[in-house]
Design a binder for these strands. Structure first.
Length: 764
DNA sequence: CAGGCTGGCTTTTTT
DNA sequence: AGCCAGCCTG
């Protein structure tokens, strides 16, 4: 078994314990995925299970894909034969399609995304005569989601929740479920919920799956919610061969229903469970690990793990304070360039190997602005995703309508997009006609037209729209017709493409580009149906870039990733830990924030730089900030303080041995006199005075595109990917001051913009 | 029906 | 400060 030789003792123990319940506590960077995949390979190699008898569950498609690839690589063959490897949701859909009728659905039910869900709820809210302003649909969606996360059907919502959504929550939840059933649709929460209720109501079906799925593996167990927990427990009750992998210290999704409790009480749920701890870290230096451990140690109720590494030395975690957020961004930009060139000492660090991890996405802006100015390539991870974009959702609605003409939500979305002269009045008439006759909106429209119930110009256009849907639908039923051509035809004939071609806003060219990409994505599918099914569950858009870029993302988005150099800006109380988190969830919230800090630090392999600013604009108001309480928890021995003494912040650095602060209570930091007289603070001062704050660097930008510099003159019209159209107001070397039509004046490096006329003819 | 104005909100996000 | 939704006006 060559794959076993590759493992350390703990990993091997986790792989060899095939039977019975196993909890694999895998710290950051301890080779968790390796152990997990080896375990699957071992199950197959020992003949304990056949490929279709292993249930391997992850949260994200990305994790599922990664697992598939790694197992395939280790086996030297594809994993086509492992149908039960996927996300909770994709596996649930598979189960639910088979038994849809038992959940009151047809097996071709559609899966609604958040947007559809919200529009539906809005309708119910209006119908119930509730002021949507005071009681927003988002709130109701949140309430219903949290109930579904707890596996509560409308009947099971406890009376203690009766006050939810102005006392109308339960009632609306019931109506919503009713509506979904009529539409033959599910939201994401339903996928899990229906499977759980199905298993509970039909022991025979459950037993069948229990018999089938002899071995169960679960990744990121600390992120499971109650519904997922029940889902797993029901399935695992058969053979009790369940292996859950997770790290309680990395549980950061409590706010969306994840229960750390699930992992904490695993041993109670599964008596006799074997617990294996993976603690040898292969990712980070000892200083980085020590810093992370120092912070997380402040959390109570941990299962407890101590990461260690054989790696010696390395750089300490760096800590620096700045005057404000802009200076912080400037300094980090300089540091990144210095690392890239290798002028900071040590090997050059490529931009792909550097990341900035922020608490909240609005923090990204300062960095984007700065990087645009200095021409530092960056990529933002986790922005709006491809399939969530307006134009993609519109196009998808057209496709849905072609496939199922009775899809009312799709009908509503596009009946007047592009504008067909069908305003509120016309649409309400259609709705009413449909409701009265108990038909779909499309049929309602048809009937209304026949009855002459639609006025003047709208009538002709609606007739054309209905005829279009009929035509497209007929084509989806024909064999041998190219679905790609059909898609193009739909976008063309509906006037949707033309709508964007006529649009002169800066986003229009990009949207046309996206539509082209959408059509291209169809190539990988047999037909439109297959494509729609895929998109409902797999909302992702991973683009591999040829150009090296720094990554900017939230701490949440960074989980599971690693980078040689990591910057953690904005470590200020209120921002990180987030005030809102503490207000809403108290100590629990604070502890989750602390785990977020732990996740952040442990992303770093070699260099981790934490920073904070003394002043920051919050909602447009300048505020003076205190350094994060987490900074007090960093062990002094593993941190280099780069901040000039007495300058900014200044509140960190009390005398307690081993840490910067004596505690995390605000009162502690208020006694500044003590702090400044303390040995700890003097030590900090001595250390930081030995080094310049940041070495002066020769001025920046390795690559200057001379062609770009010379090709603009003042007054030129230009186009920028993010800011749209504008005119050149001033030129300074390779930098342009551009007055954007929408975004105001910005300083931008010339190679980031194109002449406006070039942007105009993006072909479609 | 467009376009402009005002008022309210503002953490994290996968499926 | 900036974004969005809803409202009013032309």
């Amino acid at each position: 078994m060559p794959y076993l030789d590759d493992l350390n003792p703990a990993q091997r123990a986790a792989v060899l314990a095939l039977d019975g319940p196993v909890l694999m506590l895998a710290g950051a960077g301890t080779g968790k995925t390796k152990a997990l995949t080896s375990r699957i390979v071992h199950l197959l190699a020992t003949g304990k299970a056949r490929p279709n008898e292993i249930l391997a569950v992850t949260f994200t498609n990305k994790a599922a894909r990664e697992m598939k690839e790694r197992v395939a690589r280790m086996l030297g063959q594809s994993v086509e034969g492992m149908p039960w490897m996927g996300t909770f949701h994709s596996i649930s859909v598979k189960i639910l399609r088979r038994h849809a009728e038992l959940a009151g659905l047809k097996s071709n039910f559609t899966i609604l995304d958040t947007d559809d869900q919200l529009r539906l709820l809005k309708q119910l809210i209006v119908a119930a005569g509730i002021d949507e302003k005071r009681w927003p649909a988002r709130m109701l969606a949140g309430v219903i989601d949290s109930w579904k996360n707890r596996a509560w059907t409308p009947a099971k919502v406890p009376s203690s929740e009766a006050s939810a959504y102005n006392n109308r929550g339960t009632e609306l939840y019931e109506q919503y479920q009713e509506r979904l059933r009529t539409l033959n649709a599910c939201d994401f929460g339903d996928l899990l919920l229906h499977v759980v209720t199905l298993f509970q109501a039909h022991p025979d079906i459950l037993a069948q799956y229990q018999r089938w799925l002899r071995y169960i593996l679960v990744d990121e167990y600390q992120d499971t919610n109650v519904a997922q927990y029940l889902w797993l427990r029901l399935l695992a009750q058969g053979h009790r061969n369940i292996c859950c992998v997770g790290d309680d210290d990395q549980s950061i999704y409590g706010w969306r229903g994840a229960e750390v409790g699930n992992i904490l009480r695993f041993e109670k749920d599964f008596p006799g469970a074997e617990v294996v701890r993976l603690e040898q870290n292969y990712r980070s230096t000892e200083h980085i690990l020590a810093a992370a451990s120092g912070v997380i140690a402040a959390n109570a109720g941990r299962l407890g793990k101590t990461l260690w590494t054989e790696a010696q030395g390395g750089e300490k975690v760096r800590l620096i304070g700045h005057w404000d957020g802009e200076e912080e961004a400037r300094w980090i930009g300089d540091e990144i360039e210095a690392l890239q060139r290798g002028t900071r000492g040590g090997q050059p660090v490529g931009l792909n190997d550097q990341a900035i991890l922020v608490r909240a996405s609005h923090q990204m802006r300062a960095f984007e602005d700065r990087f645009l100015t200095i021409g530092l390539p960056y990529r933002v991870i986790g922005g709006p995703r491809f399939y969530e974009r307006l134009e993609i959702r519109d196009a998808m609605a057209y496709f849905r309508l072609a496939v199922s003409p009775d899809d009312d939500l799709a009908f509503e979305r596009v009946v007047n997009t592009p504008k067909r002269g069908l305003g509120d009045k016309a649409q309400q008439d259609i709705q009413r006609t449909a409701r009265v006759s108990g038909m779909s909106l499309l049929e309602g429209a048809r009937e209304l037209l026949a009855a002459g119930g639609i006025g003047g110009k709208g009538a002709g256009q609606l007739r054309a729209f209905v005829a279009g849907v009929d035509r497209w639908h007929a084509k989806t039923l024909q064999q041998g017709h190219s679905h790609i051509e059909l898609a193009e035809q739909i976008l063309e004939e509906s006037g949707y493409t033309a709508m964007w071609q006529a649009d002169k806003t800066p986003e229009a060219p990009g949207r046309l580009e996206n539509l082209k990409e959408l059509v291209k994505a169809l190539e990988q599918f047999e037909n439109l149906q297959g494509f729609l099914e895929h998109v409902a569950l797999i909302m992702e858009n991973e683009t591999e870039d040829a150009v090296e870029k720094v990554s900017i993302m939230t701490l949440h988005a960074a989980k599971g990733l690693e980078f040689p150099a990591v910057f953690l800006p904005g470590w200020e109380d209120g921002l990180f830990p987030s005030q809102r988190s503490m207000d809403e969830s108290g100590l629990k919230g604070l502890e989750e924030e602390r785990r977020l800090a732990y996740v952040g630090i442990t992303r770093a392999e070699h260099l981790c730089t934490i920073s904070f600013a003394a002043n920051r604009r919050v909602y447009g108001q300048w505020q003076s900030q205190l350094p994060s309480r987490f900074i007090d928890e960093l062990p002094v021995a593993h941190v280099d303080v780069l901040t000039p003494p007495g300058l900014y912040g200044g509140a960190y650095g009390a005398a307690a041995p081993g840490g910067f602060g004596g505690g995390s209570r605000i009162e502690d930091r208020a006694t500044k006199a003590d702090v400044y007289n303390s040995p700890g603070w003097r030590r900090l001062q001595e250390r930081s005075s030995q080094r310049p704050v940041s070495q002066p660097r020769e001025s920046r930008s390795p690559v200057i595109d001379l062609a770009a510099v010379s090709s603009f003159t003042e007054g030129d019209r230009v186009f920028h990917q993010k800011f749209g159209y504008g005119s050149v107001a001033a030129i300074e070397g390779d930098k342009l001051d551009i007055a954007f039509d929408k975004a105001g004046v910005k300083k931008i490096v010339a190679r980031f913009v194109v002449a406006a006329h070039e942007a105009d003819d993006v072909p479609f």
